[in-house]
Amino acid sequence: MAIKVLKPGLATTVQDLGRPGYYHIGIPLSGGMDRHALAAANLLVGNEEGAAVLEAVFMGPELEFTDDALVAITGAELPPKLDGEPRETWTSFKVKRGQKLSFDFLKQGARGYIAIAGGIDVPLVLGSRSTYALGALGGFKGRKLEAGDELPIGKASAPVKDGRIVAKELRGLPAGMPTELRVMPGLYWHRITETAGVGFFGDTWKVAPEADRIGYRFKGGKPLEFVPREPPFGAGSDPSNITDACYPYGSIQVPGGTEPIVLHRDAVSGGGYFMVGTVIAADMDLIGQLQPNTPVKFVKVGMDEALAARKSRAGLLGKLRGALA
């Protein structure tokens, strides 16, 4: 069985839970930006949690099914339509052979996850089906979908019934405005002045238009002032330069001290800009659901709070598994 791509959407890619183990040669994890929503979509249709799905950003694709299937859409509020008839998000539903799945305009969030029972059956590359578009690696031909593509679908394991719903409190989406992203200061935090550090956590930032799978840029806060120094050999003359180093996932670099960039699943693995700290792992999914112009506050936390948040996020996934078992 296969699905035909009639319209590709804006930047729809095949993603699973990613490709660990190759960051040391510049190949990033990739995988769904909102991993919780990806797992939810899979569990709804009876897939393994990490099966390959479609990640659609801002705008859904239009797909035609060559066989009957069970489908679920999670993540962003990207309302599905089956042959033009509305369907619910976060709810599994049946699709008949020949039917067309399309989407209404995005209402909330940024990325929708489209799971199909059996999973998208593109070849495994370095252990994952995720697309890393910058390196033309994995996914469907190493790129975002185009009209005319035919995506192979795997064989569904045990059939599960349709109409199952993920309750609101198990969806793990950003709550409230501005969205709070918890940050552990560190890395090259000492490069900025105390006043700049206070400003960084005090200011309200907004998601800039340059926000993609590599990283999210933020604007609107005060520029950061640097502690004066002699540039170290190899670093470069700008006060925001460092001798090119590794970039953690979630790390916040601020080129020129003006617009922070949080690196995400398709992160560049290293470079020559200093970083003020790192968004904790538990809050990375939230970033994947932020639209441009969304107000954001960075909230200072320590390791203990980061680990507690991690436990709480894992607990949410545990409840989701229980609910869909």
């Binding site: 170290p232 670093a235 968004v279 792992a281």
Partner: peptide
């Protein structure tokens, strides 16, 4: 330095050599 809850970052020297 910790890079969040999943990374340890180690700067051997500020300057390249």
């Amino acid at each position: 330095s910790y890079g969040g809850d999943e990374h340890i970052f180690a700067e051997v020297a500020e300057s390249m050599s």
